[in-house]
Design a protein around this nucleic acid. Structure first.
Lengths: 156, 156
DNA sequence: CATAATAGTTATAAGGCATATCTGTTATTG
DNA sequence: CAATAACAGATATGCCTTATAACTATTATG
């Protein structure tokens, strides 16, 4: 009974029974933790989740257009612009003109970009191994599979 | 081959193999979908995820203080103020003075608040059943359990 | 060719979240 | 017990994420 002290009004422990009945509640709580840890993990590389994700997709899809990238990231084009701006300014990627379509840019990672991504990605893998340390591979696979099966509903 | 059209540069389908190796990536994608659907679900009640959550916790913990609520929701006190303001303005909750501690407020849901929450919560349950329709109860339990086992790491 | 559609951009706004700071109030402690 | 620390709530402020509207330049279409 360390510091029982002065319990203001009702319970010391807040009852969240109603919310715990919802899967989405657990998803949010878990993701908050993962996200916070990921932010710390990426900080040494001066990357945020969004810039890391964009860089990952550009590295894995050389020549990608901004519209494709925005679509893949599930964000709107205007919001992607500043992300691509930042990666370009840091010379991690280049915006090349597409000869066959002068409206579009072909995004490609530079050598520095690929190198930084390699290091950042290794850190992210370590971060995940740390966070999911007490979760065996089978459970981890089940978790991943269950999550990836959640899909948008068709609007009948 | 419906609309193959004019494939700008590289693939039609963006390769996110690297990202798919991370559980957090699947968590974010899945949560985005759940969150978007939840927003639509709560709209008829003029609730957002945060106001719904706050209301749920106040209904389930009558007399809760704002500090306790903020801590339970994992947000900072200043951000809770506006949420509680909104619920109070809509007369879904009341801020009662705590006689034993004149600094604190005891939050309690009004009858209208409890009624609205009842309806909203039923809608949220329906929303989850819809989203997780193709997931059997065992998988759903495994998912919930795996998610709730993700914990903040001790900073050795 | 006129019009629509597309790629990228700019401007703008709203929501979510954090920090610093302030006012009262309560707790601690020398 | 008076001085100080700690706490509850509130205000101000700023950053990040995301969305929409509207603009330019270019390409596609009827």
């Amino acid at each position: 009974m360390a510091k029982a002290a002065k319990s203001i009004t009702p319970p010391e422990k807040v009852n969240d029974e109603t919310l715990r009945a919802h899967v989405g509640y657990h998803m949010k709580r878990a993701f908050n933790i993962v996200q916070a840890d990921l932010t710390l993990t990426l900080k040494p590389f001066e990357l945020r989740m969004l810039t890391y994700t964009a860089l990952a997709l550009i590295v894995g899809n050389p020549g990608l257009s901004q519209a494709q990238l925005a679509q893949a990231m599930g964000i709107e084009r205007p919001n992607l612009v500043v992300i691509v701006d930042e990666l370009e300014r840091r010379e991690l990627i280049v915006r090349d003109k597409v000869p066959t379509d002068r409206r579009a840019y072909a995004l490609t990672a530079t050598l520095a970009g690929r190198r930084l991504f390699g290091k950042a990605n290794a850190a992210v893998i370590a971060h995940e191994n740390r966070l999911f340390a007490d979760m065996d591979d089978a459970t981890r696979a089940t978790l991943t599979d269950a999550l990836s099966r959640i899909r948008k509903q068709e609007k009948t």
